[in-house]
Amino acid sequence: MSTLDGPTVSTAAPARALVARNLRRVVRLPSAFFPALLMPVFQAIAFSGAFAAAIHLAGIRNSLDWFVPLAALQGAGFGAMSIGFATIIDIQSGFLDRLRMAPMPRRALVAGPLAAAVLRAVFPVVLVTAVGLIGGMNVPGGWLGLAVLGVAALGVGFVAAGWGLGLAYRMRSMAAAPLMQFAIFTAIFLSASQMPLALMSGWAKPIARVNPVTNILRMARQGFLGRVTWAHTWPGLLALTGLGLVTTLWARRGLSSVDRI
């Protein structure tokens, strides 16, 4: 029996192998992973310390309650997006070509890295939340509040990974890296990331009002500012679902563009 006549390979098995390979990279190349791990912690501390007085004006007594969820989302986004950098290296080294020639469904080449990226995003989210809790962050929403933060952060990680992967497949060089970071950076910061909408003014306010990240942040923060409610959850879930679908499609089409070369 020739290779072409061989048994059909499912998506799950190669995707699992790609997840394992990507996670091994964390151990083998910690220098590429640690900045994404430590930056959100530093950001949570720095923003909470610097802007505490401004946040108090919004009736929020502990600035960690406001900035830790932001740092968790940002850490997840940047941590997961780095899958794009890894993919570019795979493209340049020719490893992706070997994967493309392997008898497995194309969707595994998207599903595997996306799943790995989401798993990588868990580390900064857990670390920054733990630091926040040690620092005295309040969680009136309890375990549900923490769970909702987890869903929001990993959802942002999934979206960021899809964006990074799609860009990596299209540009196929490290020139894509600043573009990957810039888009995530501006999407997060042009939302109600630093101050509540009611206290914002000027040019960024109307952008923040329509930016879906504002809804995701509202969802992520609710358990730290009060109780978890469906009214604060569904807009965030809707935004994550929409962005997730768009970026997954972007990544899948990006892979198709590699096939067309």
Partner: peptide, 15 residues
């Protein structure tokens, strides 16, 4: 700076 003005401009006038 532009983002800071939009985010903290209102707060600054109240502090």
């Amino acid at each position: 700076a532009a983002l800071g003005v939009s985010s903290f401009g209102k707060a600054a006038t109240r502090l």
